[in-house]
């Protein structure tokens, strides 16, 4: 609700941002992580230092910290794509949550390229086999505001959930609740509430995470397009494509990379084409 205006006095933000993106694109995750951790430490220090002096400064640093966290989770998401895609999903959701914080800043869209990152992450999300999620319906009887400790419905509490107050994000803790029911929904409140998919971790490419596995052979933070095609493929043809990818796992980013196959989890015969651009 309370939009925060961000200001950067020196070039260090832009330089570090550019450097981190470059490291990620070159898949030098170790250096990227070191730089990200130093930035997170710096933002934490700034929040502690200004804790009771300037609310605006604290909130600004909170937003910057969320930006660095976004890249931290993105690296984890990308590195897990091939080995444990279900962990990768959790980190992808953390990236999207970090973008929620960036949206609190007035000039966020241009400052962090958050729109572009958001669309890119949504495309990665669409390759996962999760289409239905668990979701709970409940009646809250007692709740507490994280900032003032009062009931969020009482007149004493002026804090709006999701807003920043002295470098802290307001949330509501549910102390007492009755669960009414559980449902399977397409658009849940929390996308981490997945239905577990059992698969052979040694053979991810033949699992419902086949699309995600293929994505891992592309370069991170380079766009790819998904073209929907009404083409169904035979199993043999599909496996042939997979074998070809296996032979050339490190495709250069600009080279056209085309795969047509049937999405395993989809019942209708829709084929996909992933193309690195």
């Amino acid at each position: 609700m309370r939009n925060i205006e961000l200001k950067v006095d020196d070039d260090s933000f832009w330089n570090d941002k550019e450097q981190i993106i470059k490291y990620i694109q070159l898949e030098d995750f170790e250096n990227a992580n070191t730089l990200i951790q130093s930035k997170i430490k710096f933002e934490n220090n700034m929040i502690d230092k200004n804790g009771d002096k300037s609310e605006l400064v604290c909130n600004q640093h909170f937003i910057f910290r969320a930006y660095w966290h976004l890249f931290e989770h993105f690296i984890k998401c990308w590195t897990h794509l091939r080995s444990s895609p279900d962990d990768s999903w959790n980190h992808l959701q953390d990236c999207l949550l970090a973008i929620d914080v960036l949206d609190l800043s007035v000039n966020g869209n241009d400052f962090f390229d958050s729109n572009m990152l958001y669309n890119y992450l949504l495309k990665i999300e669409s390759l996962f086999p999760y289409t239905m999620f668990n979701s709970v319906e409940y009646v809250t009887k007692k709740a507490t505001c994280s900032i003032c400790g009062n009931n969020p419905f009482s007149k004493e509490c002026n804090h709006i959930k999701g807003d920043l107050y002295y470098g802290k994000r307001c949330y509501v803790t549910i102390d007492e609740a009755n669960i009414i029911g559980m449902s399977l929904v397409e658009n849940p409140a929390n996308k981490k509430c997945i239905i577990f998919v059992e698969y052979d971790k040694k053979n991810v490419k033949y699992s419902p995470f086949g699309l995600v596995w293929q994505l891992s052979f592309l370069k991170p933070l380079f766009d790819f397009t998904i073209i929907y095609k009404n083409v169904s493929m035979t199993r043999d043809k599909y496996l042939k494509y997979l074998r070809n990818i296996e032979k050339n796992p490190k495709l250069p980013p600009k080279r056209i990379f085309q795969v047509e196959y049937k999405k395993i989890t989809q019942l209708n015969k829709i084929g996909f084409k992933i193309q690195n651009t």
């Binding site: 009646v139 002026n158 449902s183 409140a189």
Partner: peptide, 24 residues
Amino acid sequence: NQETQQNATYLSDPEEILSLNNID
């Protein structure tokens, strides 16, 4: 109450809050 010139009042004191199961 904070951001607009209008005034909002609870018709009854809120005791129970319903959370439904999707992002709507």
